[in-house]
C-alpha cells in the first residue's frame, strides 16, 4: 500500500527518487533509541515552534479588532476578523510611499547587482586571464579590511549621492561574497564549452550570454534572491545617507513606527497624533515582512544550494 502511494506521488511530481537513507537513519532502534528519537523530535519541534509562533502571533493580532487585542493575552487566530489596522496603516501615504521606495530599490538594485556581479565573476573565472590573481586578491582583501563607515559616507556624499535613492543601491552594488560564489560557479563549467564556442567565432560577451547564461540559471536565481532580500532589508545605508524622510524605505519607517512609539514621529505630515496601537504595529510588521514570506517558498529551492556554494573556499 505504502509503496503504491510512493510511486504515485513520484510519478505525479516527476521527482528524482529520494536520496538513500543514511546509516544513522537505518540503524534498528533499541528501547533507549526510541527515547532518544522522541526527545530529539521534541527538541526540534519546540525550536521550530519558537521560530514560527512570533510570526503567527504578529499576523493574527494584525487582523484582530482593537477590542479583542485588549481582551486576549495571546492571539494566533483572531475570533473577530478586522482589516481596520491595515486601513489605518494605508490611510496616510507614508507607508505606501515607503513601500514604493523599497520596491524600486529592490528591483533596480537586484538587476544592477546581478549584471555587474556576474560580468565581473565571469571575467575573473577565466584562469588564463592575465592579472587575475591580483584582481581576485583585491576583492578578497575588502572582506578582511574596510575603510569603515565615515570614510564611505564621505565618498558617497562627495559623489552627490546622499538623499537620492541611488545611495541605497550604488554603494552596495557588488557583494564580494556573492561575486566569489558566482566566480567559483563559472570556474566549474567545463572549459571545452568555451573552446567550442571560440572555434565557432564567438567573442567573450557572446560566450557569456549564449553559452554560460543558459547554464547558470540556478546560480543567477540564488544570487539574485540573495541580493533582492538584502535590498528589501536595506537599513544601514538609509540611516547613513538619507535625511529626507520622504525617501525612507519601509525598514526605516517600520523602526520609527514600532520602536519610537511617540506618535508624532509617524507622519511628518502630522495626521497621526496618538501612539500607534498594538495591532497597527503588527500590521506594519506584516507589510514589511510580506514580500519575504511570499518569495520564501521559491527561494527555498535555491538557497541551500547557494549557502553550500558559499562554504567553498574563495
Amino acid at each position: 500500500m505504502e509503496n503504491v502511494d510512493a510511486t504515485k506521488v513520484r510519478r505525479k511530481k516527476k521527482e528524482k527518487p529520494q536520496a538513500e537513507l543514511t546509516y544513522v537513519q537505518k540503524i534498528k532502534l533499541t528501547p533507549m533509541g526510541y527515547v532518544f528519537q522522541f526527545i530529539n523530535g521534541l527538541f526540534l519541534t519546540l525550536f521550530a515552534l519558537a521560530c514560527l509562533i512570533p510570526f503567527l502571533n504578529v499576523i493574527g493580532t494584525s487582523f484582530a479588532t482593537t477590542k479583542e487585542v485588549l481582551l486576549r493575552d495571546f492571539i494566533i487566530i483572531p475570533h473577530s476578523f478586522s482589516l481596520s489596522a491595515y486601513r489605518y496603516v494605508f490611510s496616510t501615504p507614508t507607508v505606501t510611499r515607503a513601500i514604493g521606495v523599497s520596491v524600486f530599490v529592490t528591483v533596480v538594485g537586484t538587476a544592477l547587482s546581478l549584471l555587474v556581479t556576474s560580468l565581473m565573476a565571469y571575467g575573473l573565472s577565466r584562469t588564463y586571464l592575465y592579472g587575475r590573481r591580483v584582481l581576485n586578491f583585491l576583492v578578497l582583501f575588502t572582506m578582511l579590511f574596510s575603510g569603515g563607515m565615515i570614510p564611505s559616507f564621505l565618498i558617497v556624499s562627495n559623489l552627490k549621492l546622499t538623499n537620492t535613492l541611488w545611495a541605497l543601491i550604488i554603494p552596495s552594488t557588488v557583494s564580494a561574497y556573492n561575486m566569489i560564489i558566482m566566480r567559483n560557479f563559472f570556474q566549474g563549467i567545463s572549459p571545452s564549452l568555451e573552446e567550442a564556442a571560440k572555434i565557432d567565432g564567438a567573442n567573450h560577451l557572446q560566450i557569456f550570454g549564449r553559452v554560460m547564461l543558459p547554464l547558470s540559471k540556478a546560480s543567477f536565481a540564488t544570487i539574485g534572491l540573495f541580493y533582492a532580500v538584502t535590498y528589501w532589508n536595506t537599513y544601514r545605508s538609509a540611516i547613513l545617507y538619507l535625511t529626507d524622510t520622504k525617501k525612507w524605505p519601509i525598514q526605516v519607517l517600520l523602526r520609527q513606527i514600532v520602536l519610537m512609539s511617540s506618535g508624532s514621529d509617524f507622519d511628518t505630515g502630522s495626521v497621526e497624533v496618538v501612539p500607534p496601537s498594538q495591532s497597527v504595529r503588527m500590521a506594519v510588521i506584516v507589510v514589511a515582512t510580506l514580500p519575504i514570506l511570499l518569495v520564501y517558498p521559491f527561494i527555498q529551492r535555491y538557497f541551500i544550494h547557494g549557502a553550500m556554494l558559499g562554504s567553498v573556499k574563495g
Binding site: 565581473m120 584582481l135 583585491l138 575603510g147 565615515i150 564621505l154
Partner: peptide, 23 residues
C-alpha cells in the same frame, strides 16, 4: 572584452572600498 566585463565591478571596488581606505 573580458577586461571590459570586469571593469564596472572593479570600479565599484576601487571607488566604494579602496577610496574609503585612503580616506
Amino acid at each position: 572584452l573580458l577586461y571590459l566585463m570586469i571593469l564596472p565591478g572593479l570600479l565599484y571596488f576601487l571607488i566604494f572600498k579602496y577610496a574609503p581606505m585612503g580616506g
